[in-house]
């Protein structure tokens, strides 16, 4: 393609946007709305995921063994657990260690444990299991049940379930809303460009008669769509970025307790993914819009 042709396409694309200013702005707002919802869903889902990962360490699975096992058998069980899929580590906790931990936790009242040392320790041998990802908890629990020598297991069922459910629900709702808004944006963009196409029908007609290829005619409209998509995507991203950072700092300020539970993802980390994602999504909306609106008019 010649440089002069590219210049011509860009000039024509911008001319089209200017001629239909009102619809151009409407389309940009539609794209911006769509991208805003997408960004919001992304922030919520990513943060829930991020917090879940942080909590994994504290949640984990504790496995308690039957009392009458030899040290060989304990090592065998440990190896079996480590061999399971999605298990990062299984660290051994002896009854003595467990008792020390209890004493630490009870602090001043550790007197109640007097006489339970050594031979009299009623606690079992146990393992602390670390998972790759909390979502695998159910699967690992299932497999643990097949291992001989395990008496019972302790795991934070409710916390995990709530967080997982919330994360999944947000993801599904987010995707649904995005789909609906995506269709609406495409429809508005299609209309904008359709008006532009109708206004330039004679021009397209003449272009066809003098032997312009379909792509030659399409390019200016495509550029129109891409610009609508880019601007529509940039606005919510540029507003959203500082807004997110501010929201997180407000959370920490007014709900300091939240910091003990989990940290939010840094705005830089969120937007280093969200910025290119939004731009790509915006451009895709614009391109789909322009391609569908011009198709009919090319059949001359």
């Amino acid at each position: 393609m010649r440089l002069s042709t590219i210049k011509y396409f860009i000039k024509e694309g911008f001319a089209g946007l200017k001629k239909n200013m009102l619809m151009t702005v409407a389309s940009m707002i539609a794209v911006a709305a769509c991208i805003t919802i997408m960004s919001f869903s992304y922030c919520v889902v990513t943060n829930l995921q991020y917090m879940l990962n942080q909590m994994e360490d504290s949640i984990g699975i504790a496995v308690f063994l039957k009392g009458d096992l030899t040290s060989d058998e304990i090592t065998r069980i440990q190896n079996q657990i480590k061999g399971l899929d999605h298990v990062l580590d299984a660290s051994y906790v002896s009854p003595d260690d467990a008792l020390d931990q209890l004493k630490d936790e009870w602090g001043a009242e550790e007197d109640i444990f007097v006489g339970l040392d050594g031979e009299n320790n009623p606690l079992s041998h146990s393992f602390k299991i670390e998972l790759e990802d909390i979502t695998y908890q159910d699967q690992v629990l299932q497999e643990l049940q097949n291992i001989d020598g395990i008496e019972n297991m302790n795991y934070a069922k409710t916390e995990t379930e709530v967080l997982l459910k919330a994360s999944n629900a947000f993801r599904i709702v987010g995707i649904l809303v995005m789909l609906i808004l995506g269709v609406i944006s495409v429809m508005i963009i299609v209309n904008t460009i359709k008006i532009s196409v109708v206004n330039r029908r004679i021009e397209i007609n003449i272009m066809k008669y003098v032997g312009a290829t379909d792509w030659f005619i399409r390019w200016p409209f495509l550029i129109e769509g891409v610009i609508i998509g880019l601007v529509g995507a940039l606005i919510p991203t540029l507003i959203g970025w500082p807004l997110y950072a501010k929201t997180v700092s407000l959370f920490y300020e007014y709900l300091p307790i939240i910091q003990n539970l989990a940290q939010f993802k840094a705005s830089g980390d969120i937007y280093s993914v969200l910025l290119p994602l939004s731009l790509a999504f915006g451009v895709a909306l614009g391109v789909i819009g322009s391609v569908t609106s011009i198709r009919k008019h090319l059949r001359v």
Binding site: R2, S4, T5, I202, N205, I206, M207, V210, A212, F216
Partner: peptide
């Protein structure tokens, strides 16, 4: 092709109307 109703682009000059036909087939400037 020449039509009864001329079919010129009203917002382009005579020169541009003619040049347009060459630009469309990507003739060098």
């Amino acid at each position: 092709v020449v039509f009864q109703d001329f079919r010129l682009l009203p917002n382009k000059t005579v020169y541009e109307n003619v040049a347009f036909a060459m630009r469309v087939i990507e003739a060098p400037s």
